[in-house]
Design a binder for these strands. Structure first.
Lengths: 221, 221
DNA sequence: AATGATTTTTAGAGTACCCTAAATATTTAT
DNA sequence: ATAAATATTTAGGGTACTCTAAAAATCATT
């Protein structure tokens, strides 16, 4: 069985390669795990015998199918636990990341099978991120950023790009959550902020940054 | 924060001292943690600066109040998770120990507060062991072993002494669980086994070993 | 193609665990 | 009270991770 550290390396590599196409480089992994580049090189050399990834000096790493499988199962576990924490225990979406980060390393296949059933086989976590099924398949969704909507277009919030605490708390502050209805009132050219109508009732001005990080499912008019 | 290993040492010391009065000795700790006596000595020396226990060479260790507090909280977490696994996820009582052993190390006070509330502030775990409250207080109960009951005395099963898997599965086999009614029909002198009436319907012959490990709350006749 | 900036690796060392074998202390039995 | 048995510690070493500083390789710019 893989150690917690190993699991964290594999997950970091998965997330980096998923975002930037191509191999994950040493510095990126180090940044992701808040460790030094030297430690990463050391770890990659020691781990590379275990067939989770291909590593070539100075070229970075990419996962094998075994590594992808492992990363996917970790993401599955992380997101299922997040659903548990929010839906069952009553945590809010900005409080669950660190706890799920610990829970995802608990090793028991039966536990995940039963947890998944108990939660009703959820397809998305509290941030709208898809939960891979037991076979590792993600359910994708037609979604666009709020920023990309044209004037008068409507939709509902289905996810957030980065689920960092400050952004989630910013959204809490405006009472924006998954399922919140949005209609574009206008784009402000000056700073690319947007005026939107929230839940058919409240008019809000949202920054470009916020609008680029909110995922919307469009309502066909 | 204490490492998982440290936590396991403290818990082992607590359980040993609880059972055998007096200091926990090196070999007992080693046996409890499936490690070598030399490793235990090594660890005790390194850990003894942290004020969890008093250690004197060749004399064994006993916990300080800080150590007792830590052990108690770990037991609280372990038993709450066991309740979750059985009551909510549908595990049986013989399947939950190892999973709870991992879950108990997850570090979040808020998580335990919310989990406890979600479970309805249970006082006992699935094996009938008391769950200490947030202040570390155990709810004790009037209980005796089945073995100690006289002929014709009645009671209900409220716990098991050791919750090792084989014993729990043995009980499953006879459909004996917490809440099962027991009435003593006779003591067999030859091997100290007992003839009992289970749930007012089934007559069973139980071994001395089993009867000594079953806790009963007597019904006043 | 050479220089400078950046990235990555190597070298050397530290901590937190674990081990076996040997030495020493304590307990038990005579 | 001594010998034998048992319990504990010490000595020496191993693995999995971490680090900083220095060396080497790659990339970017002219």
């Amino acid at each position: 069985m893989a150690s917690e550290t190993e699991e964290n390396y594999i997950k970091a590599i998965f997330k980096i390669t998923e975002k930037n196409q191509g191999a994950a480089n040493t510095n990126a992994i180090a940044a992701h795990l808040s460790t030094s580049a030297a430690s990463v090189t050391d770890m990659l050399k020691r781990l590379s015998s275990k067939d989770y990834f291909h590593y070539e000096k100075y070229k970075g790493v990419y996962l094998t199918s075994k590594g992808i499988e492992m990363a996917t199962q970790l993401i599955r576990k992380h997101r299922l636990w997040e659903v548990f924490l929010v839906d069952k225990l009553g945590f809010s979406w900005d409080q669950v990341h660190d706890i799920a980060e610990q829970l995802e390393h608990v090793d028991s296949d039966e536990l995940i099978i039963k947890l998944d059933a108990y939660l009703g086989h959820p397809k998305y976590d509290p941030h709208g991120d898809p939960i891979p099924n037991a076979e590792g398949k993600f359910t994708l969704r037609n979604q666009v950023t709020l920023q990309s909507l044209e004037k008068n277009e409507k939709g509902t919030v289905v996810g957030v790009r980065e689920n960092d605490t400050p952004f989630l708390q910013y959204l809490n502050h405006f009472n924006i959550k998954l399922g919140t209805k949005m209609q574009v009132l206008s784009h402000i050219d000056y700073d690319h902020s947007m005026k939107v109508l929230v839940d058919d009732t409240v008019e809000l001005l949202l920054s470009h940054k916020a609008c680029s990080n909110l995922f919307i499912k469009k309502t066909t008019l």
